[in-house]
Amino acid sequence: MYTTKYHKASDAANAASLLGASPEAKILAGGQTLIPTMKQHLAAPSDLIDISGIAELSGVTIEQRKKLGVLKAKGGETITIGATTTHYDVANNADLAAVCPAITGLAANIGDPAVRHRGTLGGSIANNDPAADYPAALLALGATIHTTSRDISADDFFTGMFSTALNEGEVIKSVSFQAPANAGYGKFPVPASRYAMVGVFVAKSIDGDVRVSVTGAGDDGVFRHAGLEAALSSDWSSASAAGVNVGAEGLLSDIHGNAAYRANLIGVMAKRAVDAA
C-alpha cells in the first residue's frame, strides 16, 4: 500500500483534531474495509488515526425505560453502542441480546469470526458500503449517530452509496436507539463475498411505528421500503410482508443477481425477518 503516517489517538477529541489537521487523513478503527482498500491502492490516506484503543468509544450500555406504572411491555430501553465496539463484542453481549436480539444476531453474521474480532460498528457505518449490515439496522431502528460535534439521525446520516453526512474532522463516537418492541433481520449473502445481496431489517417501536430498511439491493445504498412499512404497519405478520409486490426499479444488477432477483429476495427476506422477530 501507499505510504502513510500512523497516529494513535488518545481520545475522541484528539482523534477529531488529528483528522482535521490533514485533508487526506482517515480514521482507522478495525480496518476491515479500509486496509483491503488501501492494499489494492484504491485509497491513499496521508495519515491514519487509530481510534481502536480509546476506551470511551467502546462498549454497550443499556438504560432501562422509566417505569410508567403500567405493565412493562417489551422494548423501550435506550441502547448505546460505542463506535469501536467490535462485531464480536456486540454479538456476544448477553444483556443486549436480551433486549434486542436482532442486533446481536446481525452482528454475529457480519463477515467471519476473524473479521468480527476486529471490525467495528463505527467503521461499518462510516463507510456505508451498500452491502453492509449495520446501516440497515440503524435506519430501521431510527438510531441516532453521535459524533464529536453533533447528533445525526440515521435518516440523515446515510446519504447514498459509500457516502454519509459526516463532515471533515468529524468522528463517530457512538450510536444509540430505543430497543424495539419487535425486530428482525433477514440476510441473503452474496455467495462469493458473503456481503448482503439483500438484507432486510424490520422493526416495530414500542409506539407501534414500523420501519423497514433494505441493504445490498439498492443502487444508491441502504433505503427504507415504503410498501413493506405500510403492509407491516397494518398487519405485522410474515404473510403480510409476503403479500407486498416489490418492484425491481432502483435495484442493483450484477453478476451475482439481477434486479428482479433482488426484488424477489427483498420480499422473502422481509418475510423471514418478521418470522425471526
Binding site: P191, A192, S193, I255
Partner: peptide
C-alpha cells in the same frame, strides 16, 4: 454451483477476486 470466470464485453474480468469469484 459456485465458480465462474465472468468477462464483460470489453474483456474485463468481473470476477477477479474472492469478492466475486465464489470459492
Amino acid at each position: 454451483m459456485f465458480e465462474g470466470v465472468v468477462y464483460d464485453p470489453d474483456g474485463q474480468q468481473l470476477s477477479a477476486s474472492y469478492m466475486d469469484y465464489c470459492m
